[in-house]
Amino acid sequence: MAHSEGFETITGCKVRVMRGGAGAPLVFLHGASGAAKWLPFMEELSSRFEVIVPEHPGFGQSDTPEWLDSISDLAFFYHDFIDHLGLGPVHLMGTSLGGWVAAEMAVRSCEMLRSLTLVAPAGIHVPGVKRADMFLMSPEELTEALFHDKAMAANMPQPASEEELMVVLKNRLMTAKLGWSPRFHNPDLKKWLHRVSVPTMILWGDDDRLLPAAYGPAYRDLIPGATLEVIARCGHLPHVEQADLFTRKATAFIEGVAA
């Protein structure tokens, strides 16, 4: 199925948006490495849902607005985004940094949400669980740390042009701006996760070195009624490394909510 790519100007910021499929709207919020390409799991999901994938302000081909200082700014921005596009209540899915944004949106208001799918989300701190420091890793080290399957890591495409390298640097800069300190969490978030009032599923790879799977139960216990699915032989990117299993689980959860 073909997907479309275009730009929307929302809250004074031009963002790139990919859209594909038909059905209930599903907004996917990407992680630190951006959303340059329409990935196989997006294509799979678009057979059941209308999949909407924005590139965050400050990432990829989207503008970097003056007002963007924190994850809180992004959370409010995406409420504007849903309003502006007239999407109505959406299934919200976010991974890593984008999972943090999704959680922050949900504690602010669930009025425009139908469900919440958090994939190895950042946002909270779990004492005693050691995270890897992506900011001290070379690009090669980071790619390796993201995957359970070393062969898959080795096959990940590296930036092929100056333009693509610039996007990598831009994404890394905004990731630092949003997540350097406190490192990838908001100390206040866990105080308010009880406000999440839509069905929530949390997915985690069992071999996630960036945000270890031990974060999963902690997150689950903070959100009323949330379920946790741990995916075996999988790193920080279940939607890439175990795309088929991920899509099946996500689809079953979201369709279960709709039913």
Partner: peptide, 10 residues
Amino acid sequence: MPKEMLLPPG
């Protein structure tokens, strides 16, 4: 020191 330590993003 490695490059990532010397030149953090930004």
